[in-house]
């Protein structure tokens, strides 16, 4: 019924080392996936807000991007994990980690989204007005499909950045791949081997992510009418 790992834990014995690394990998993947989703939300919200017609909305988005591009993700992370609880706000460390990396990468992403929207030729807006589309319809049906294609290469860079930034969470005792690597290294003394393992682990995830993003870029290109099978 029970796996070997679970049995040993229940008996208070050390978890097998490979199991630790696998657990760490799972945490890193979770952080990356949820961090990326939340970062995308921040990036698109703030990126669209930057071209809002309302000055206040533009101002808030500008403040967010400038603030979180300037702050080290680690400082934000310390704030969420150590400072907020002292103000009476207790966040789950894993959730805090997701939020911290998402705030940071989302700020860079907002700039990518804003500049891609701004790069669509003004003639597209003119043409949309000429057929009486509303501003929202224009953004949704004309501007965004074209802008997404140009965003994707920059966003996939940011996705890799986000993956790497998740390693910071080991400093607030979240048991990600880096954290577990340190444990294994301390237990075995095989520093070179363990760190080589970490390099390969992150490298492999990065490879998979950029492969996925390339596929996405191709699909979006078709969506935007850039790549057409004739």
């Amino acid at each position: 019924m029970f796996g070997a790992a679970a049995m040993t834990t229940m008996l208070g014995l050390p978890i097998p080392l490979w199991q630790r690394l696998a657990d760490g990998l799972a945490v890193t993947l979770q952080l990356t996936v949820f961090g990326a989703l939340l970062a995308a939300v921040f990036a698109f919200l703030a990126g669209f807000a930057r071209i809002s017609r309302l000055r206040l909305v533009r101002g808030i988005a500008f403040g967010y991007t400038e603030a979180f591009r300037g702050l080290p993700a680690l400082v934000v992370l310390f704030w969420l994990v150590f400072a907020l609880p002292s103000l009476g706000w207790q966040l789950d460390p894993l959730a805090a980690s997701v939020i911290a990396v998402a705030l940071n990468i989302g700020a860079y992403g907002a700039e990518v989204v804003r500049s891609a929207l701004a790069a669509i030729p003004p003639g597209q807006w003119d043409a949309a007005t000429a057929v009486n589309l509303s501003r929202g319809q224009t953004l949704r049906m004309v501007i965004l499909p074209q802008a997404v294609v140009t965003m994707i290469p920059s966003l996939s860079n940011l996705l890799i950045e986000l993956l790497k930034a998740t390693a910071l969470v080991s400093l607030v005792y979240v048991q990600d791949l880096t954290f577990q690597g340190q444990i294994v290294r301390a237990a075995t003394g095989k520093t070179a081997a363990v760190f080589l393992g970490l390099l390969l682990g992150y490298g492999l995830i990065a490879l998979v992510l950029s492969g996925l993003m390339r596929a996405l870029e191709h699909a979006a290109g078709k969506w935007a009418g850039r790549v057409v099978n004739s």
Partner: peptide, 13 residues
């Protein structure tokens, strides 16, 4: 409605 010098068709459609 208006027709423009640079056509301005929507390239994604």
């Amino acid at each position: 409605t208006m027709v423009f010098q640079q056509y301005n068709l929507f390239p994604n459609m």
